[in-house]
Nucleic acid binder design. Structure first.
Lengths: 224, 224
DNA sequence: CCGCTCTGTTACACGTTGTTACGCAAGCAA
DNA sequence: TTGCTTGCGTAACAACGTGTAACAGAGCGG
């Protein structure tokens, strides 16, 4: 539910039910902020927070139904950046998340979907917002929502091989879709028909057989 | 009193009764963190916070007896790092000061914006009361009751995705209308024909497929 | 009563998105 | 080489979500 709200607000959310999972996500270096429910799982969120803080600089916000001062203080003492008591106003939570992110100001990674900067790649121009891209010759190409999302993920990770699982997670597809489905292959195909000169022999969005896909173009942020 | 407590806790405290004094201290470069009482002095602490944030990266914590969510959010939107409501537990305040200091020691930051009664958005002006809006070029556009209500809900939640359920609840529509009906879609369409340059390709009131709608424009309060 | 506006409902058109199925390409072993 | 397996591309399809025209009823002022 909180997850849904954050997603609707433009964040990538990687759910994790255990400390091991969190460590996994951290190891892949794609986390900007950890929102930790104190009561979730069998290990105390405060404990997890302390353990994470020992090894990581990552911003951590604790969310908890435990709102007594000594409980809050325990959270802060374990290195939390903020401690938000339930029930909370979602908009206020967003404001606090942003405050912490502003303070931490890490280079935006995959975890931040609200891409505001404009990109230039292989002659193409994408303004970072609209569902369209400008071709090298200035033609406007309409992209669907999914295509736009895929493009953003690729642009955020140029030359980095992405597995189907990662793409599926980034596009917020259901787990089951990711498992059986060919949805991503089809989506890639559709994007290729729009941005590749010759979709049969892709130069931008390449296939890594047995692995996934890569954006094989240099990407520059471009204010123009 | 707070000052004494902080001193006893090992902090150097430089009292300041005005914004000018704060600026003075900042100029001397000996400040690590600003603890600002919202109600102190004749200028609003929130305003001071915003002004300071424009020029400085310094951590700012607001302390205030005003604890309503919208008041907190106003603080965060002005760039505060934390907002502590009175009465507070001194030990907890210390914990939060330390949390902010820890975070600030590692990184720098940036600034933000505000909200309330008469609005300006995307060149439009809405006085917050009447059933009409002024277009960017000064044309008066009549809005129906429903359209006005919808606009208000959107203006109160800029950049926040709203589901049809949320909108229906805000407009006080019956449950059944919300369930089956397309009333909101139609209403959105009608508002779009009035405020969008090109209703077929909306730039202000955007659709989030599978989710709902968002006001994709920055909103500012405007006394004029 | 008429005429007007506002509002929710319905129905249809259309674009988008995931699934399935089939064919081809790439890799591998013999 | 041949034959087999696995992975990928994609056409075709069905399900779904959204925009909107048309309609009907409510409310209101004359």
């Amino acid at each position: 539910m909180l997850t849904d709200f954050l997603r609707r607000s433009g964040f990538f959310v990687l759910p994790a039910a255990s400390r091991a999972e969190i460590e996994g996500h951290l190891a892949r270096g794609r986390i900007d902020l950890i929102l930790l429910d104190v009561m979730l799982g069998d290990e105390s969120g405060v404990e997890i927070c302390g353990a994470l803080r020992r090894d990581h600089d990552m911003p951590i916000i604790l969310v908890s139904a435990l709102s007594a001062d000594h409980q809050r203080m325990a959270g802060y003492e374990m290195g939390a950046d903020d401690y938000i008591a339930k029930p909370f106003n979602p908009a206020l939570l967003l404001a606090r998340v942003r405050a912490v992110l502003n303070r931490a100001r890490r280079t935006p990674s995959l975890a931040y979907r609200r891409t505001t900067s404009a990109y230039r790649f292989a002659g193409w121009h994408y303004d970072g917002k609209k569902n369209e891209a400008l071709s090298p010759r200035g033609f406007q190409v309409a992209l669907s929502r999914r295509e736009t999302e895929l493009l953003k993920v690729l642009l955020a990770n140029p030359h980095i091989p992405l597995t189907r699982e990662e793409i599926a997670a980034a596009l917020d597809m259901g787990e089951e879709a990711e498992a059986s489905g060919r949805a991503i292959d089809v989506l890639v195909g559709r994007l290729r028909t729009k941005i590749e000169r010759n979709p049969k022999d892709p130069e931008i969005l390449k296939t890594l057989r047995g692995t996934g896909y890569v954006l094989a173009a240099d990407v520059t942020t471009d204010p123009a």
